[in-house]
Design a protein around this nucleic acid. Structure first.
Lengths: 250, 250
DNA sequence: CGTTATGTTGATAGCCGTCAACATACGTGG
DNA sequence: CCACGTATGTTGACGGCTATCAACATAACG
């Protein structure tokens, strides 16, 4: 299972001051709200860190002296009950920000779903930057407002949608967020192919279902020729309009 | 049902510059992060507005040129599906902040659960204040982070808790947030009395259940002598420890 | 080639939703 | 004052959706 491995083990400095310029998310991540001189300051405190799929990134109730930007890979945020039931309460894709400023402990677990590259910032120094660069704080604030909107959309899904609607909503959401595969300009319009970043168990924990129900709904979508399954992970959405209808977005 | 009535109808100016000083939430609301001179500026743009129970405060997808502080009463935030199913995604008590800065439209409906007093601020002018008073923005940012934590706790409830756990969790949450009634220093420890601010239908929409299931779980708690029902709305928690256990917080 | 992880499919059970009847409170108008 | 309608809440009978339990299939891996 998940190897225990904290965010602050085995850090590599971003020693090269030019490194930010070569970063794949430099134009989208929170750091893009900084002026060049400010970015140089951030560059000094930034550290790279890789996580293998399954590794813990944040531990609930434990001190976490870093915040981070997701450079590559996918991360899940997990809330859990004492008896082991768990619920995924957020997914982080590049170039999302990860971690909670103002307050030292995380309230959820965060685990790498795939191999992950993070760009870490010591929390204390990062908060100093926030105090000095209002644009950075505004940007982070806006990102948090967006996260709250996403969380509330998901609450509607968890509380009121059927299993069928949940799975359809999930696929529609993933299609919008993960990098797509293959030629998207085929003769068939609305066909979208992508690689699912997570297992059926993760999907179940994300949707408040069991893995069996997720599996059944997937085969149902396959039977109705709304999706095609190549590899359990590689999916083509054959009819995006129909999928959106099923998701309750019509 | 809910009377359509927008936030910007029938406004009263907070003409009196001393009015903020007499405000019942002045030491808790976001405005408490302002220095006296700054508060005077806020005072100038503030407007009082009352809403009757059932009135709409925010309409999804409509322009809303105000943000506000809840001075008294309770407000629910609602997400809904095209077919009418709905989910309450947030409750606002005094001295919470209401409305979304940065972005003109609301993504949820907000409706007064009880009679409500709001202190409104024109959004554009409020955002100017945010830009000039970093403490205010930091405060609002922190409040938003807290809201996000609450939303994620609720996602665990919606996705993974049973009806029994949901109702117990709800009562435990309400007991922490609404003003309590009567003498709390009785001979019986852990007895907490309060007035439920919402109907069974609201509770059901908050918990992702039906009103019948909520009702059955309430009588079940009553039968087990964990709560006492006086008036369908006036509740005494007889055994808070047991309730917390049932809520899955043990 | 066995072991483990992951996913699918079937049979069954149970929780909770649906439908219905009834109770109570409240306001309106006769 | 009472009749009536409406809103809210409770309780019961029943059914369906989804969880549970189980068997099996497939792939990855040492």
């Amino acid at each position: 299972m998940a190897t225990i491995s904290y965010m602050h083990d085995a850090l590599d400095h971003v020693s090269d001051p030019e490194k930010c310029k070569r970063c794949s998310v430099r134009h989208q991540a929170v750091c893009s709200s900084l002026a060049p001189a400010e970015l140089a300051v951030l560059n000094k405190i930034a550290r790279k860190r890789e996580f293998k799929a399954g590794q813990n990134i944040l531990i609930a109730e434990e001190d976490m002296p870093y915040v981070a930007t997701v450079v590559s890979g996918v991360i899940k945020l997990i809330q859990s009950l004492p008896d082991g039931r768990q619920q995924i309460v957020g997914m982080h894709f590049p170039p999302d920000f990860l971690g909670r400023t103002y307050g030292t402990k995380s309230r959820c677990f965060a685990e790498a779903v795939s191999d992950v590259d993070l760009c870490l910032f010591p929390k204390k120094e990062f908060e100093n930057l926030l105090a000095n660069y209002p644009d950075l704080e505004t940007r982070l604030f806006q990102d948090t407002l967006d996260e709250l909107d996403v969380a509330r959309d998901w609450m509607l899904l968890l509380g009121r949608k059927t299993a069928s609607e949940k799975v359809a909503s999930f696929l529609a959401m993933i299609a919008r967020r993960v990098p797509l595969q293959g030629c998207q300009h085929s003769s068939e319009p609305h066909q979208i192919s992508f690689h699912l970043p997570m297992t059926r168990a993760d999907i179940a924990d994300y949707l408040g279902l069991t893995i069996e129900t997720v599996s059944r709904q997937m085969t149902r979508l396959k039977t109705h020729e709304i999706i095609r399954l190549h590899d359990n992970r590689d999916i083509t959405i054959l009819n995006m309009d129909r999928l959106s209808e099923l998701a309750g977005l019509s």
